[in-house]
Structures are given as structure tokens and as C-alpha cells.
Design a protein around this nucleic acid. Structure first.
Lengths: 201, 201
DNA sequence: CAAAATAGCTAACTAGCTTCGCTAATTTGT
DNA sequence: ACAAATTAGCGAAGCTAGTTAGCTATTTTG
């Protein structure tokens, strides 16, 4: 993602600010409306999305610093975090990241090739494989630690403790709302005469 | 995106909860640490990411409801929102969405093919084109309006007005922090003697 | 009025991730 | 004990979202 808007707020030409058709509300909850308009709400939603892509971009930057692609970075961190004392399986990493096992397999191959991660066949299940960081991987992650720190510190520079806790709390509740909303959506869908029907089981 | 984590919090096997190596802090700001640990901070960051992908998933669901792909949906809404009285140019939509003009061109072609959007050559600039919703497009968006509403209402069901305003405010500041952080990162990069340059192409 | 900039288009390509189909090992039902 | 079903991992093929490069037609500008 290459920096969204530049600084050019010209949406039309430069002469008229015609509103066009009314455009329906995006929420009906009074608490989310400011002066009867959903404008602030839409902006907040957009900011949320912007923040999300910033976080992704920053993560991509950190990945580059470490010399790996973004998905490699995610898998690498997941292994670091989940390996415990014996190592972690491909499928556990896949579940943790919410991606397919086949994908983790591929990514891990690259990480092994560059010597950051190690695969040792599991002794208790000979189909399985246990992933651990190599010494080089651990060294990399330690040497690297200060970058996420500076990034995160800058990100939240203007947020004080009270705000942070509130943010954490609110976001947790919105995530819960998200789960509900997604579920609702699914149920709604089921009512429909089944379009696409395939896969997902 | 096919449903991330299910509900299975099993990361390893089921027997041990070994901690593994210490894992470096992800922030140094005291305001972000709870009891000297960055655990809450990391969780908040993860929640933020989760929320982002929920929003995306919900948007994808709305898109399907409308019978278009996700990027088509985004372009469609952007046109609806920016068209004003005369229509909006391809490049304005591209800027608004933060994607390349070429991409918008393609997406718009599909939307034109399915009759939701209209291209009329601009009379004042014969290179340009003005995008507007067709009658069918407008009808679609109106018939459709209640879906985003129910989704958004459910999403923020537990958030009251005060919290909403604070959230909007905090997020705005974090976005500003994100811009700073990204900039910093860029500057840092320039200082370095260009590592790797090639790789992965 | 020539040079540079701008709007849009097409084509070729990349990254990230999925599904499908396979093998080998494991678990389960009888 | 052993056939049937399941699970772990792998490779290949394919999909989607997006990009860049290069082109043409037009407009703006020194």
C-alpha cells in the first residue's frame, strides 16, 4: 500500500461542492450520530481502516528490516511465540495466524532456507514436524527488538495511560460486536436460497 | 477471507504451557505497560488487527449481498459518494481510495458491464470521463442501505456516545502517530547503506 | 506553438493466499 | 487385528487484488 491520499483534497474539479443524492445513513444508532449526521461515524470508520493499513505498512517495514517478506515475518514471530520448549507444529501456526496449512508450509520452507527456523521431525508423531527458531533466528529477533519499540512508541506517542486503557477496552468490545455481526450475517445468509453453495462446508 | 480462528484456543498440544525464551518488549512507553508488562498492549494491538479484519470481512459480506466483489463495492460506494451532480473522474476515485488509476479503470469497466455505473465523456475535458451511478445503481444502493445499518449497529451495540467520541478522537491521533511512524521509518531507511536491494524481486 | 503534464486505457506482472489432490502416519470402530 | 477414517504436511495450480510500464489523446504552459 503506497501512501493513500497525498494532500490533494480535490474530489471534483474545484468549482462546485454539490451534494448529489442524499446517500443513505450507515447507522441508525443515535449514539453514533453527531448533529443528526453519520458523517463523523463514517470518518471514524475510515480512520479505523486507515489505522489498520498503517499498522500493516509498519509491519511490512519491520519485516523488511529483518530481511523477510511480511508473511514470513508473521510466521517467524508466531513460531517464536508458540515454540515453547519443544517447538510448534505447522498446523498450530496456521491456526494461530488464520491461514491455510499449505501456506505455512511454503513460508516455513523459505524461513528454513534462510536459516531462521528449524524443522525437526516429531518423535511422537512421525507425520508431524516441530518448528523452532535457530540460534540465528533468536539472535535476529533480539537484535531486532528495538525497532518495533520505536515504531510502537511513536504510534501511541499522544495517547496517555487512561486513553490507552479505554481504547483497549472499547476495541475489545467492538471485536465482540464484530463477532456478533459476522455471525448474524451468516445466519441471514442461510435464510437465502443459497447462492454459490460451494465449499466452506 | 474464510473465517480466521475458529474457537479452538489450542496452540500447542494440550499438556504443557511452557513459556519459552523471554521475548523482548514491544514498547517502552510506561503508559502502555500494565504491571510492567506489555501483555495488554500486545493484546490490544492484536484486537486492533482483528477488528480490522472483521471490518474487512463484513465489508466483503456486504459486497456479496450487493452481488459484487469487494473492490467493486468500494469503487461503487466511492462513486456514489463523490459523484455530486455531474459525476466524478476515475482519478478522483483512485485518489480517494488510495489505489492506482489503472485499477479503478478496470473495476469501473466491470461495474459498467453489470449496469451499476455509467461513464459519460466529460464535455469540458475530452480526455476525461465522468462516473455516475445508473438508475439501477441508485436503486441497488437504496434497497441495500439497511444492511450496512444493521451491521454497524450490531458492531457498536455496546458503545455509548461518550465512548464513541473518544474512540473517534483517539483513533484520529493514532492515525497521526501512524503517519509519523511511517515517515520515521522512511527516513531511517534512507540512512542505511541499502541492504539487499535485490532479493525476492 | 512546442514541450510538458494529465486522463485514461491495456497488458504484463507480482504477492499473498487458497483449493485440490496426494502420501504417509495415526486413530478409531468393530 | 485391521480396514476405514482422520490428520500432518507437501506440491502444484489457480485466484484475486493490486502494481508498474508504456501508449494515445488531450490539455496546459513557458
Amino acid at each position: 500500500m503506497r501512501s493513500a491520499r497525498k494532500t490533494a483534497p480535490e474530489a471534483e474539479s474545484a468549482a462546485d461542492e454539490i451534494a448529489g443524492p442524499p446517500a443513505p445513513m450507515t447507522t441508525t444508532r443515535a449514539a453514533l450520530l453527531v448533529e443528526g449526521s453519520d458523517r463523523v461515524f463514517r470518518e471514524a470508520l475510515r480512520d479505523l481502516m486507515t489505522m489498520a493499513s498503517q499498522l500493516q505498512e509498519l509491519r511490512a517495514g519491520l519485516a523488511r528490516q529483518l530481511g523477510v517478506s511480511e508473511p514470513e515475518y508473521r510466521v517467524f514471530l508466531a513460531v517464536a511465540q508458540l515454540q515453547g520448549a519443544r517447538g510448534v507444529s505447522i498446523s498450530a501456526v496456521a491456526r494461530n495466524l488464520g491461514v491455510s496449512g499449505a501456506f505455512v508450509t511454503m513460508i516455513v520452507q523459505r524461513l528454513v532456507r534462510v536459516g531462521k527456523v528449524q524443522k525437526t521431525p516429531s518423535r511422537v508423531d512421525r507425520r508431524g514436524v516441530l518448528l523452532t527458531l535457530t540460534a540465528r533466528g533468536r539472535a535476529a529477533i533480539n537484535a531486532f527488538a528495538r525497532y518495533p519499540q520505536t515504531v510502537n512508541d511513536e504510534l501511541f506517542r499522544d495517547i496517555d495511560e487512561k486513553e490507552f486503557r479505554l481504547l483497549a477496552d472499547i476495541v475489545r468490545r467492538v471485536v465482540a460486536g464484530g463477532e456478533r455481526a459476522i455471525l448474524l450475517r451468516r445466519l441471514d445468509q442461510v435464510g437465502q436460497p443459497d447462492r454459490k453453495a460451494r465449499s466452506t462446508a
